[in-house]
């Protein structure tokens, strides 16, 4: 059994629900479950992570069982089932990026942020983790930051410092 964080019930805004309605229209009648992945992305962008009450609400909206949502959310790596920092730095740790120094970049981020992979900094701003190939191998090392998954390529220790400092000031 996974550890489940205690969470408050969530409310979906009418703007969010309007987006849901728009997405569901893409699929044939009765195939609304297809909207599950895009909907979970919207939920995570709104709340910062994918909590059980939010998943239950999505299940209700799509008229499917909650377990069907849990199964999907836990299969894919992009849905955070635990709260994370405001900015999650996801660094590619796969072969080609390692050839050009991805491991050093991860060590540097760990030192700079002072937290281990997956943890949240004290100010709640940052988490980091290694992820698999981001399809930018020729421009490595690379990292991305959600919810819009902006890419930062050809990373150096200096450019990472700069990035983190800029985000802190935001």
């Amino acid at each position: 059994m996974l550890k489940v964080e205690e969470t408050q019930p969530v409310e979906f805004s009418s703007a969010l629900l309007a987006k849901f309605d728009e997405i569901v229209k893409r699929y044939p009648e009765g195939k609304q479950k297809s909207a599950l992945l895009p909907l979970l992305h919207l939920v995570q962008a709104e709340f910062g992570w994918t909590s059980v009450p939010a998943m239950d609400k999505v299940a209700e909206y799509l008229n499917i069982q909650p377990i069907e949502v849990y199964e999907v959310a836990s299969f894919y790596t992009m849905y955070f089932l635990q709260p994370k920092g405001k900015y999650v730095l996801e660094v590619c740790r796969t072969g080609p990026c390692c050839l050009v120094g991805a491991e050093k970049i991860m060590d540097h981020i760990e030192k700079k942020l002072g937290v281990k992979e997956g943890e949240v900094t004290e100010d709640g701003l940052f988490s980091w983790r290694g992820v698999e190939c981001l399809a930018a191998c020729g421009f490595g090392p690379v990292l991305q930051i959600g919810p819009e998954y902006t890419f930062y390529e050809n990373l150096t220790e200096q450019s990472v410092d700069q990035l983190i400092d800029d985000l802190r000031k935001k």
């Binding site: 893409r26 297809s34 299969f75 790596t77 992009m78 992820v131």
Partner: peptide, 29 residues
């Protein structure tokens, strides 16, 4: 013709064509 873009959720296996179809149906890949 209607054309839509569907986002995945982070899983290499969804590049395998039938896993991709499962994923597009809102299931585990």
């Amino acid at each position: 013709l209607e054309l839509y873009v569907q986002p995945g959720g982070g899983a290499y296996i969804c590049g395998e064509e039938t896993a991709l179809l499962e994923s597009l149906e809102g299931k585990r890949g």
